[in-house]
């Protein structure tokens, strides 16, 4: 039944998109509650984080589970540059992106020869290393006290103060990033990435330099994460390492997976759904995480390719395993 709903939407893409775009743009005007607007800002921010992770995990065959490491770098770079060097938001955005992408390169280097599980474990290790170093390098980062007093965003000399204004900024960043991602994915670079994901041997035999393009993939994904991290620092005005734990990595990862890895719209949906659920159940805050865990497991059981994922994609093959097993069972019982 869910399948039919998804297929209906896919068949009527344009009208859905227009309605969606209008809702998104008019959102702060329609909903007067500042609390809800705050949730919206956070949700859109997560959409950008999830999209950046999706770029790494969904298109090049990597499976990074340590995204919080990149988030931490992006955030802290922005926070420190803002408080210690007094630079403005719009200047820091690209700097944050570049610094984080350098870290992306750093993370890639030892993972080049690794596959699958090992690569994932290393990404997790890296995220923790980053967090611990940032936590303990008190002279630079203020250690457990975090970075506070990050100024607000200035646009044409005017300080942005309301949640609505921040909403439009992050929306702008998201749309711009998605636009760039779309263009990259539909070019020689994107095709090289996907060829590596589908069949690295064949890709290599066709002249695709595996190491180079895997590295580029990490670098670009990390760049967009850095951009998002910069916004995060300027929105929350205060950051510390407790925001970048393993749980946070898993949080963003689950948004990508639940929404559909390997599609541009997947992480958007995933971030939306997960934030919707965690916010709706805020009143039952103790049970919130329990529900979250159950949601993840349910998604893997019912629709492992995620909401937006294609039913015939490699991610949906859980069902194949089930059919094979029941066939084997039938054979055993008649033997």
């Amino acid at each position: 039944m869910l399948n039919r709903a998804v297929n209906y939407v896919k068949a009527h893409r344009l009208p859905f998109f227009i309605v969606f775009a209008v809702l998104v743009l008019a959102f702060p005007i329609i909903i007067p509650s500042n609390f809800v607007r705050g949730i919206a800002v956070r949700t859109v921010l997560y959409m950008l984080f999830a999209s950046s992770l999706n770029l790494i995990n969904g298109y090049c065959g990597h499976f990074s589970i340590g995204h919080a490491g990149f988030m931490c770098i992006g955030c802290y770079t922005a926070g420190l540059l803002a408080t210690k060097a007094g630079l403005g938001f719009w200047l820091i955005v690209p700097i944050s992106g570049i610094v984080t992408s350098l870290f992306g390169l750093l993370v890639f280097l030892p993972t080049n020869r690794l596959s699958g599980m090992y690569l994932s474990i290393v990404t997790l290790g890296f995220a923790e290393i980053v967090r611990i170093i940032v936590l303990n390098w008190t002279s630079l980062t203020n250690g457990p006290l975090g970075v506070k007093g990050i100024p607000s965003i200035k646009l044409f000399g005017l300080k942005l103060t309301s949640t609505t204004e921040y909403y439009y900024v992050i929306l702008f960043l998201l749309v711009l990033s998605l636009f760039c991602m779309y263009r990259i994915l539909h070019s020689r670079v994107g095709r090289a990435w996907m060829s590596i994901r589908e069949n690295p041997d064949a890709a290599c035999s066709l002249g695709v330099e595996l190491a180079k393009y895997k590295a580029i993939n990490f670098v670009v994904g990390a760049f967009f994460c850095g951009v998002a991290g910069c916004f995060m620092a300027f929105y929350y005005r205060y950051i510390d390492t407790t925001m970048f734990t393993i749980d946070e990595s898993f949080n963003v990862l689950s948004m990508v997976i639940v929404g559909g890895m390997g599609t541009l719209v997947g992480p958007i949906l995933g971030a939306f759904v997960i934030n919707l659920i965690t916010e709706t159940f805020r009143f039952a805050s103790e049970y919130r995480m329990l529900l979250y865990g159950i949601l993840i497991i349910l998604t893997m059981w019912i629709r492992p390719q995620g909401i937006a994922g294609a039913s015939n994609s490699v991610l949906a093959t859980k069902r194949m395993a089930k059919r094979v097993q029941s066939a084997a069972k039938a054979k055993r019982s008649e033997a």
């Binding site: 990862l253 159950i294 993840i296 093959t317 859980k318």
Partner: peptide, 19 residues
């Protein structure tokens, strides 16, 4: 269910279970 499925599916499940 996931012995023959892509590895990350069960990995996500164990993450959920751990939570």
């Amino acid at each position: 269910q996931f012995l023959d499925a892509p590895k990350h599916i069960s990995m996500i499940c164990t993450i959920g279970f751990g939570i």
